[in-house]
Design a protein around this nucleic acid. Structure first.
Lengths: 151, 151
DNA sequence: GAGACATCGTGAAGTATGTTCACTACATGA
DNA sequence: TCATGTAGTGAACATACTTCACGATGTCTC
């Protein structure tokens, strides 16, 4: 019967973070279903939207998968009309994976849906409290980075 | 040049939540590698640890996958010695998936690793600010639930 | 009891994501 | 030119998913 009443148990907090992330993940899954795309392919489109035309090697690094896997993902996205393989201007071995008009629309839609969700979730939170929230997130992320370095 | 200086953009906050979740996910992946288990199998073990011996149907519901898929996951976990299939005492159709000693050790280890990470991440945060953090998480999760209902 | 009908688990077959290994085509530096 | 490295892909495979069909039980009703 110690005073665990002030229940600021760190595990509970971590669980809440994970729960929120799971819910947001579910929202992303809804988007994917609507677009008829998989998580892996949307991830690739997202990276492509942020970086512009990219070689498959670079995509493999960004997605943290093997180059061979990127070949398969790009195959699917070419078939669905979201990207094309363009020749690299200076390296004839490489191809530049490039968003089509459809691919660009999809990425834009995802960004809009993401911003919309963020506004709905955090828009009504008092600015001061939201600032604390953001700061704690930031500190925690940095603490995590330091932990990983040591290990 | 509007005053976006006070950068409390909600999208940034959401991105930070997702980033932290991704990092925590990476820590879980490390655990999985060390134990030689996959995400799906660890998830099943975790549910089993929380619920005690469970039928495959119930596991399918809890994991939000098809019963057929649970069969495959349990097959793997039986082979690796983490669970056994016990006869259901009152329903001869069903089997009770049950943690072995090894399975229990694994779940305990995961729980310990989880609590340890939580303490490292949030243990040094000022209690008052951590309380605000937790509250905002809670409000946001509830807001999300309300959003889902309407849609 | 005897059917009718639902439920539990699994075989068969198929898809997507991911791996490793081997190979071809091209790039680059000595 | 010759050696060595790098970009992408074919082949083969593992895992996690799915749907559909089916046998074995449970359960409800007449």
């Amino acid at each position: 019967m110690k005073y665990v009443h002030y229940m600021t148990d760190t595990t509970v907090v971590l669980d809440r973070v994970l729960l929120l992330a799971t819910l947001v993940q579910a929202d992303l899954a809804r988007f994917e279903r609507e677009e008829g795309l998989s998580t892996a392919r949307v991830h690739l489109l997202w990276v492509l939207g942020a970086s512009g035309p990219t070689t498959q090697q670079a995509l493999a690094q960004a997605l943290d998968v093997t180059p061979r896997n990127v070949t398969g993902l790009v195959d699917g996205l070419v078939a669905s009309g979201h990207v094309t393989r363009e020749p690299h201007p200076s390296d004839r071995r490489a191809t530049l994976v490039t968003l089509t008009a459809l691919g660009t629309r999809t990425v834009d839609g995802l960004a809009a849906s993401h911003a919309d969700l963020a506004a709905k979730l955090f828009g009504d939170v008092d600015p001061g409290r939201l600032a604390v929230f953001g700061d704690v997130l930031d500190e925690t992320t940095q603490r995590f980075a330091r932990l990983m370095e040591k290990a």
